[in-house]
């Protein structure tokens, strides 16, 4: 499948900033079933880029901007070709062992309710348990079309009737880990959740490690494994670690964020 991504993020500051540094995780990389045909990162002001790699193996871009800056627009766009793989990830750069992804973080801590929930639905062999869990998370929450609330943990999200894709993924991860299955957060792009509508944010889903299969992608938005309509960009223990943008600015005032994001299947 050919997926076309056009992702614009605009930050507006109420007071001009003297300097801006951002850590971007917006570059997808080739895997066995994902091939990046073209990809561009562009900002609307003078900036310096430095490519690198973080500890999870994600490709990173450091962005350095001198002020004064009133606003900055980051445009990420490109085309990615994918093959169906039943959600199984082949050929990704994996510097860390699955055992690391059993670790809880503040955002993915399973409280007692979630542990009970995971134990009740996650029955059987690991793969069966994961499918059951994914379906149960999917059915339990209505999709929230808004932008994810900053810093909200899985345990908090679990108390609400609706959830964003990010929250669904983090709840799945927390539940899977509570069953002793390594799980991680994936950020990327997919039309699976919002279809032709503009997405409020880059997509987030989960991967769980199954012995014999490797990492398998689950999306609790659909209740299914991720198919070929997904562009994998970054993985980490939680959504913060895989965030497309981590930023720091030098200056007073508040910031406002605008996202304009379209993911299209070519020829559709």
């Amino acid at each position: 499948m050919r997926l076309i991504v056009d992702h614009r993020t605009t930050y507006r500051f109420t007071a001009p900033q003297a300097r801006l540094i951002q850590l971007l995780r917006v570059n997808p990389e080739d895997t066995h079933d994902q091939s990046v045909a073209s990809w561009n990162v562009h900002v609307d002001c003078d900036a310096r880029f430095r490519r690198g790699r973080d500890g999870f193996g994600n490709s990173t871009t450091m962005l350095y901007v001198d002020g004064p800056v009133d606003s900055i627009e980051i445009t990420v766009s490109g085309e990615v070709l994918t093959n169906p793989s039943n959600g199984i990830v082949h050929g990704a750069h994996e510097p860390l062992p699955p055992a690391l992804f059993l670790r809880e973080t503040v955002l993915t801590m399973a409280d007692l309710d979630m542990r009970d929930f995971a134990r009740d639905v996650g029955l059987g062999e690991p793969l069966a348990a994961l499918h059951a869990l994914n379906g149960a998370v999917h059915r339990r929450f209505a999709l929230d079309h808004g932008r994810p609330a900053a810093g909200q943990s899985a345990a908090t999200a679990f108390q609400h009737p609706t959830a964003t894709p990010r929250d669904l993924a983090q709840m799945f991860i927390a539940a899977a880990r509570s069953l002793g299955i390594p799980a991680r957060y994936v950020s990327g792009y997919s039309p699976a959740c919002f279809g032709d509508d503009a997405s409020p944010a880059p997509h987030g889903w989960a991967e769980a490690h199954v012995i014999g299969l490797g990492w398998v992608a689950f999306d609790s938005c659909t209740g299914l494994c991720a198919d070929e309509a997904y562009v994998r960009v970054a993985v980490a223990l939680d959504s913060a670690g895989a965030a497309p943008v981590a930023g720091s600015r030098l200056g007073e005032g508040e910031e406002a964020l605008d996202v304009d994001l379209h993911v299209d299947r070519a020829g559709q």
Partner: peptide
């Protein structure tokens, strides 16, 4: 035992590989 490392918050995945 690997879990002693990977389950330990003092093992910092953020800087692994550097």
């Amino acid at each position: 035992p690997p879990d002693l490392i990977f389950g330990n918050a003092q093992f910092r995945p953020e800087i692994a590989g550097i």
